[in-house]
């Protein structure tokens, strides 16, 4: 079967690649695009370690075909920081040490970022349920929730400052 040609944008950069029709987005990212920050924990959409954004939508890249990236914006953990400058969520995860083994961390951060873009002022319960699809077996849940809540508060404060 012929390979498919995909034109897409990954972390803001235009990108083209060839893929098999059955290839998952996760395999394309981790394989030929060399972006191994997204992890495979289950390949069935249960664990969230492969979370990426498709335009503004949070998706499990193990459940998405690479060909579906055509014409869309893909966002991965590698695009969260701006150059050397960490995203406030990354900074806050570090501050709280809201990570242990690190396999879930990429997905947690991508999912948290997607949440704060949709809802800059989530309640604790909203954070806990939004992130319920991202499993952490080290079970660092409490610190993750605190890190997201604090980041949200600081980012709101920051945007108010900017508005003044």
């Amino acid at each position: 079967m012929a390979k498919l040609h995909v034109t897409t944008t990954v972390n803001g950069e235009p990108m083209e690649f060839l893929c098999e029709p059955y290839e998952t987005m996760l395999d394309a990212l981790r394989g030929q695009l060399g972006l191994t920050g997204s992890k495979e924990g289950c390949s069935s959409g249960d664990c969230g370690a492969c979370s990426i954004t498709l335009d503004d939508r949070l998706v499990c890249s193990c459940l998405m075909l690479a060909a579906e990236a055509e014409g869309h914006q893909i966002g991965t953990i590698e695009g969260l920081a701006t150059g050397e400058k960490l995203h406030p969520l990354q900074q806050k995860f570090l501050e709280h040490a809201a990570l242990q083994c690190g396999i879930c961390t990429s997905g947690m951060l991508v999912a948290s970022d997607a949440l704060l873009k949709k809802n800059p002022d989530p309640t604790e319960e909203e954070v806990r349920f939004w992130l319920a699809g991202n499993l952490c077996r080290c079970t660092g849940y409490d610190k993750i929730v605190r890190a997201v809540m604090e980041t949200a508060a600081e980012m709101r404060e920051g945007s108010r400052e900017t508005a003044r």
């Binding site: 960490l86 570090l94 990570l99 990429s106």
Partner: peptide, 11 residues
Amino acid sequence: TRTDGVLKVTG
């Protein structure tokens, strides 16, 4: 905080 933290939060 973790010395491996930056590597892990950036993927």
